[in-house]
Design a protein around this nucleic acid. Structure first.
Lengths: 83, 83
DNA sequence: TCGGTCATTCGTAATTCGACGAATAAAGAA
DNA sequence: TTCTTTATTCGTCGAATTACGAATGACCGA
């Protein structure tokens, strides 16, 4: 629970998750348009979300496609709702 | 949203909120029994939860009585559920 | 083959976090 | 008054976070 919240403890990561939740999937390149941050920084945030299990990345030849891990997100929702 | 999650981004603070949610209210001294941390450290965590608005503290003469801020907690639940 | 794009990793600097002990303030008991 | 209890604040330290640019590797097009 603390680990999941920690993954959402930064505005940039909340925006990323929100965007993915709204648009389903997208490539990394699109994410760099969403946030006013350097690509390397965004990659770091994406890694945090990935490590928390909240998003999934599939290597589509040279690009990387990201999407929300719905099951994991449900897990978080249940944990918070049970508070 | 990120601010609220940040407040819950540490196991000690999750435990504190859980305890208060279960037991309604309690004094600071009781909280020091719940966690294996120095009182000063616990006070820091309590301050973080208080600053986030998740708990409320009322000064009962020499002791301090803490309880969950239900409205704020509901706010968090709605934000997470809306993801 | 030579560039160009895409995404990540590495190295680094500044800031924040998390923990502790010591000092403090305020109220009550001896 | 003096001592004890209670809760907080302060100072400090190491660890973690956040940001960037530079370097890297993999793939495609010219």
């Amino acid at each position: 629970m603390a680990a999941l919240c920690k993954a959402l403890a930064h505005p940039a990561r909340v925006k990323l998750l929100n965007y993915l939740a709204d648009y389903g999937t997208c490539y990394f390149g699109k994410l760099t348009d969403i946030l006013p941050l350097a690509p390397s920084t965004i990659s770091q945030h994406v890694t945090v979300l990935k490590d928390a299990g909240l998003i999934l990345g599939s290597d589509d030849n040279t690009r990387t496609c990201y999407c929300v891990n719905v099951e994991r997100l449900e897990e978080l929702k249940e944990l918070i709702a049970a508070l």
